[in-house]
Amino acid sequence: MKGLRERLKSFLGLEESENPSKFDFLGRKKQSRRGFLKDATTTAGIGASIMGVGASTLIGEEEKEKLSLSWENYFKSNYKYMSKRDRKKAVKRLERLAKLKRDENVSISDKDAIPGVLFGYAFNISKCEGYMDCIKACLEENNLDRKSNMQYIKVFEVENGTLSVENGDNHFFHETPTDEHFYMGTQCMHCENPPCVPVCPTEATWKENDGIVVVDYDWCIGCRYCEAACPYEARRFNWAEPEVSSDQLTTNQHYLGNRRKAKGVMEKCTFCIQRSREGENPACVEACPTGARVFGNLLDPNSEIRKIIETKKVFRLKEELGTEPKFWYYMD
């Protein structure tokens, strides 16, 4: 009921103003488009709650809360344009819904990009042996669909004689490494000029300030235009409802990262945004037993990634497309 009172207050404009310019010269609360939507959903929420109270003999308290939270969740706006307060509300709502729906205790972060950080990644193709520890770690960290065996990372077995990953095979499953082959992995390259971002009709995907290209899973309508536009096969679509059992779920999550997704939305590697924004390495970097993966801040001149770009012979995939990927390959 407390929540209901708060909502009533905000709807009637009785809450304290944080920003004086929210009121016009007559002292009336200025109504922005977002404010209108907020009030409309609040009204709808109140209406739903009233209905819920009336129907309390038919559905329990938890069900009512679930319905009302799902209703609010449906009407929220694009995360990119949400205020800090709305983002906090959104993640709290999702945490509560996770508890109600599957009795999972998750913490969903809304942490913003750390200023002065631009993430970069380097991959040593002399060191990769095709063990795929990275893929397993990624799958577990990012709560990927187990049923379809969805994987963000692809490891290619390429025959010696070409550096072109198109000539490789990423469907191998035998002991590695084999003679006359080398191994290289691909995932989202987090391009500085991503071709997948301008094509989205609803602005559901964008590049954050620290260079990570993210997707707002609840805003995506599932048109798959970004999947057609990506030259690196980075994007994954949830063709069916993703299945991850609660005991295998990673509970430290980020709104733009590894939280549970619905069917019909796009997802992809986020450089483990829930980890990298806390100063940790992505799961793939941690897991690699040969040290083939390097991650760091491109704007720090002392970081390993900068040193590698400056000293080693690096290349990127499909540089001629002008996408400026932040994923370099190098050799010993």
Binding site: Y81, T202, E203, W219
Partner: peptide
């Protein structure tokens, strides 16, 4: 019928959603 989330079609309407 092709899009994965037809219930979110309102995301496309400029003003209510965001049309890119």
């Amino acid at each position: 019928v092709d899009i994965g989330g037809p219930q979110r079609f309102w995301h496309l309407i400029p003003g209510i959603g965001r049309l890119n």
